[in-house]
Amino acid sequence: MLQLITFSTLNGVLYGMLLFMMASGLTLIFSMMGVLNFAHASFYMLGAYFGFEISRRIGFWPGFVLAPLLVGVIGALVERYGLRHLHRRGQVSELLFTFGLAFVIEELVQMIWGKLPVDYRVPPQLDFVAFRLFDTTYPAYRVFMLLIAIAMFAALLTVLTRTRVGLIIQAALTHPDMVAMLGHDVPKIFMLVFGAGAALAGLAGVIAGPALVTQPDMASLLGPILFVVIVVGGLGSLTGAFFASLLIGLVQTFAVAMNFSFAEVLGPVAPPFLGDLWKVTIAELAPVVPYLLLVLVLIFRPTGLMGRRES
């Protein structure tokens, strides 16, 4: 039991930090530009595929550096030549544009790399056991992922609170017009934030790709969870997104680990109407848990954990 708790906590925090690497960009983009970017998870997928492609040609580490940069540049171009022009037409066109973009990216990925998972591997330098606890081993690569996610979190926090660009971003969250009238190029800042958000998602893809599965539906599987995260956290709240990422990471990891059914815990006699559900294991219900959380939050706290207003 202690073993289950320790490893589930570790994995849950790791999964949560990965979610936050994507949710942070999504949240910043939403609160600055009012765009819910449906293609955000696609940037994560692109990161994984670019990482794979570069790693099989010149190695994992060049991919680790280049793939997120490449995804960031693509993100910046999407903002500059797509979203910026659509902004005048209103939010619906922007939403549809990112929605379409997600499909285009998925199709392209399938055309180039095929429908089956690609063989994106953990680099040999990190392919060993980091530690052993209660007779269970923990891979070094997961420790590496956790460290990268924490480093990114620290970097994001530093940039936002300690640098001039960070101040401009914070100010532009509430008063973009005033920021522009002080002489700052707000559209350029938007482009940078969009690019940086895409790069962060790309980095998440690069490091998650070898540990999870790199396949064309990885974006469409992750996308909904990301939305759950930012809604549960409170749309537009970075702190909220952070706690919601951890919460969902932990809840889902623990649910998966609970390989027993209600029947095993509470006795074989099911309450009326719950006959079949009683025999399902909690692990089997795990995929539903985030959405259950979403529904509960929307009912009891419609603004999300840290959201201040409904918009």
């Binding site: 017009d177 522009a180 009238m181 002489g183 700052h184 190029d185 707000v186």
Partner: peptide, 8 residues
């Protein structure tokens, strides 16, 4: 000019 250019 755009507002930020005017300001500059």
């Amino acid at each position: 000019l755009k507002p930020h250019q005017t300001a500059l």
